[in-house]
Design a protein around this nucleic acid. Sequence first.
DNA 1: ACGCTTGTTGAGAACGGTTGTCAAAGATCG
DNA 2: CGATCTTTGACAACCGTTCTCAACAAGCGT
Lengths: 132, 132
Amino acid sequence: MAARMTRQRTAVVEALDELADFRSAQQLHETLRARGESVGLATVYRALQALADASEVDVLRAEDGESLYRRCARREHHHHLVCRHCGSTVEIDGPTVEAWASKVAAAQGFDDIEHTIELWGTCADCRAASVS
Amino acid sequence: MAARMTRQRTAVVEALDELADFRSAQQLHETLRARGESVGLATVYRALQALADASEVDVLRAEDGESLYRRCARREHHHHLVCRHCGSTVEIDGPTVEAWASKVAAAQGFDDIEHTIELWGTCADCRAASVS
DNA sequence: ACGCTTGTTGAGAACGGTTGTCAAAGATCG
DNA sequence: CGATCTTTGACAACCGTTCTCAACAAGCGT
């Protein structure tokens, strides 16, 4: 239960710190491998899972169902505007939306309310790239 | 390309019409099978996909990644408050949220904006059931 | 009603992301 | 250093979903 700090976990955390965009476990694994820091794929999954459990990273699902991970600047609850092509991300918070969500749900007699509010789009860079 | 009306497709549509909750393709397949209307699993997937493309059904992803389908009353854009245990659903629209989402995204220079806004909770019935 | 054409079906294989297995490796503590 | 006990990694297993392809059946024209 002691959460040991191993070379592999350090490598995953460092990689996440250097990347600003949402990345899949497999992309991360590839990045580490290319960098010479060889880490097993299963280990990357486990590390990300642990970090997510500890709220150290944010997780969201791409449209195809793949899980994407990112180390966000703020640890408080917030949402994202993500480029569906490159993963480029802008953190967003919407106090209005939060209030709306919990009010609506409570009014219907629901408990343990959670909400998913994510925005997807094509960022300016990817748009420029696809035009050329 | 003509979209033929087959026994199988009719069965899927009818089953969806009778069910008020979000269901997975496999649940639907099981329901049809139990009902005597034997339909292949792949066919259920294809039918649901076609219906989704035609905006005849709404699709959303459960927390475990599974796709859930539902024939909604209104065809216009809306959101859902869904019980994560039984799939029981309340349709919701939030004009305020819509405006907020597109404004925020546009302000960041993003195009082709889509948003995912879903509420998950435990409905009153399921809460009562889990207490007992 | 009868073929013909062409989209559709279904059983099973294939796929892709993720998780489980388990012996070997290594982090931590005394 | 040694004992302990978590972590690792290669690989298999899983599970939802999609693909394959020969058999089948809608719908159309006659």
